[in-house]
Amino acid sequence: MFKQLNTGDKLFTVFNYALLTLVICLMLYPLIYVLSASFSNPEKMLQGELWLFPTDFTLESYSLAFQNRDIWIGYRNTIFYTFLGTAINLIMSIMIAYPLSRSDFYGRGPITAFIMVTMFFSGGMIPTYLLVRDLGMVDTIWAMVIPGAVSVYNVIIMRTFFQNIPEEIREAASIDGSTNLNFLIRIVLPLSVPIIAVMALFYGVGHWNAYFDGLIYLRDSDRYPLQLFLREMLIQDDMSAMTTSGTEGVAKHLLRIEGLKYAVVVIASLPMLIIYPFLQKYFIKGVMIGSLKG
């Protein structure tokens, strides 16, 4: 096929592949570096001996990370917030998107315009905090999952997907005596697995990486998500609770901190990296149909 192209097309193809290869390398190198650094001797790494593959291979950083109580607390909380928050997100998004996709739903135009306003204008952080406080959700798990229960952007994508389900199917189900709720549960949702999987991925990654809500709403460290512990390590260098001995020299203490940072970054990122390949086939199909057709 390449031989059938003219000279200009061949040059463009070569340039395109070269550019994409460069982009892939630029994206993969930081990931590989962080992974290699987590398995390397921190002293060798700080001396600049680490370029791509681990130097002086060691599991000390992972051993130190898994021995720490805060890591397990953060993992437990993040998993709980992710599953609970994603379930709430999907239920709320479907409840909004499906009625708006129905041509026989009275007032869907004004309602769609109303919710789309929130994509461009919001009350701001302080009014949102005051609202969460007045609802009694500060320092509770609900502060992590309720304020962002619905993404209007995701609702629009899901609504567009629902609109592509043939109207004849609903009419046939209605003739057979199916109610609207029964039609949604038994027909629409099974046909919408691709877009639901995509939305689950979007919402799940958002909850897994969330730390700002925990930063402003949570006071009890036993409710902190993993990303908040990670933030403290990477930004604040608050590592006093992450080391097991107070008698070590300052230099060795700092080396252990440096290695621990990279290990925790890998631990925090690994679940999403594992899940994504299983949802990739739905990701492409769901986003394309939900975004382009209508």
Results as ranks from 00 to 15, higher is better:
A18P: 03
P42K: 06
P225A: 04
N182M: 07
A97Y: 04
P166H: 06
I115Y: 12
W142Q: 09
T160F: 09
L31S: 05
Y276L: 02
V265Q: 12
L90V: 07
G259S: 07
A37E: 09
S93D: 06
G259M: 08
I88V: 02
L260A: 05
E248D: 15
S192P: 11
H207C: 08
G290N: 10
I257T: 11
F283S: 01
A65R: 00
S174E: 15
P190H: 11
M1A: 14
T58D: 06
D104G: 09
Y203H: 09
V265S: 13
L226S: 02
F80S: 09
I267R: 02
Y29W: 14
T78H: 06
L228C: 03
M125A: 12
Y62C: 01
V145I: 15
R76H: 14
L28G: 06
F105W: 11
M288R: 15
I267T: 04
Y81F: 15
M242F: 13
L184V: 11
A173K: 06
P54N: 08
S221C: 04
V132F: 10
L64S: 13
Y217S: 03
D213T: 07
A143Q: 04
P194A: 13
R219C: 09
Y153R: 01
G286N: 09
M116H: 11
T58I: 05
V23P: 00
L255V: 01
T58V: 05
V198F: 03
M144P: 00
D9N: 10
T247M: 08
L84C: 08
L20P: 10
A268C: 08
V145T: 10
P147C: 13
I111R: 09
S40V: 07
M242C: 02
Y211S: 08
P277D: 05
F39C: 10
F162N: 04
I32K: 00
I79F: 12
K3L: 15
R186A: 07
V188L: 09
L84F: 07
I267D: 07
P166G: 09
D139T: 00
F229D: 00
V287Y: 13
S103K: 11
S93C: 11
L26Q: 12
G123H: 02
K281T: 07
F278G: 12
L184T: 12
R223F: 13
M1K: 05
S122P: 00
Y75E: 02
P147W: 11
I275G: 06
P166Q: 05
G48R: 04
P277E: 06
T58Y: 05
L228I: 02
L184R: 02
T82P: 03
E60D: 09
V265D: 14
P166K: 01
E60F: 03
P127Y: 13
T128V: 01
S221L: 14
I169R: 02
Y262D: 09
A172N: 05
Y203C: 10
P166W: 07
S93K: 03
V117C: 02
G177A: 05
M1V: 13
R256D: 14
A113I: 13
R159P: 04
